[in-house]
Amino acid sequence: MSPNRKALAAAFPLTIPVLTGYLFLGTSFGFLMGSKGFPVWYSLLMSLCIYAGSMQFVTVQLLLGAFQPVYALGMALMINARHLFYGLSMLEKYRGKGKCKPYLVFALTDETFSIACSAACPEGVDSGRFYFFLSLLNQSYWVAGSLVGSLLALGLSRLTQLNAGGIEFVMTALFFVIFLNLWEEKKHRIPGLAGAGAAALSLVLFGKDGFLPPAMGLILLFFLADSRFSKGGAGG
């Protein structure tokens, strides 16, 4: 098998949970775009060059409003500020990935991060290619979903009768199962609880529209203040 085939074969099974989630969420996004009367190529352009789930839903609202590109930029920075943490977490794993690295960095979504941070590249597989295919497969599901959704909304309005309400829970279940897998390792428990706790506290205090920035601030404070983490006791 060629190195590419080998890396693709190793990456694909890990992306199956994301396949379901992205096809569904991508289709919902495309469907929303189509039902607001936006052409298919808008959805494709967004899924190809923004490629951030919750932000793309917000962008639908932005496109319906007045033309305010600076405001749009600011919204993207705020809502996606959590990516800064993913990047910091992946510095080591994505180190020295050469030609693949720009795409790995661009495609670091919530779901790709959740898979990539817990996945180990199998023995004998080129790790740059492994993470590249992991990322590329995930984006291809997202783009495919967006396309299908847009076409559905444009062409086949009778399919709106299909009721798949609640399937978005697939994402919650995915995050929760990964959380449970990490929980198996004792040393992951305090960070895991700190993250969930800070987010929950912040959600109660600030409400669902503005809780992410304070939650991230709390998490940073926690780890910087806790000497076990800042002085090197909890390595790995």
Binding site: L91, D110, F175, A199, F223
Partner: peptide
């Protein structure tokens, strides 16, 4: 050090976020 603990904290945050 932050990079070694943040992935786990972020997963907790994502559960709450979802």
């Amino acid at each position: 050090k932050l990079g070694s603990v943040l992935p786990y904290a972020m997963m907790g945050l994502l559960v709450v976020y979802s």
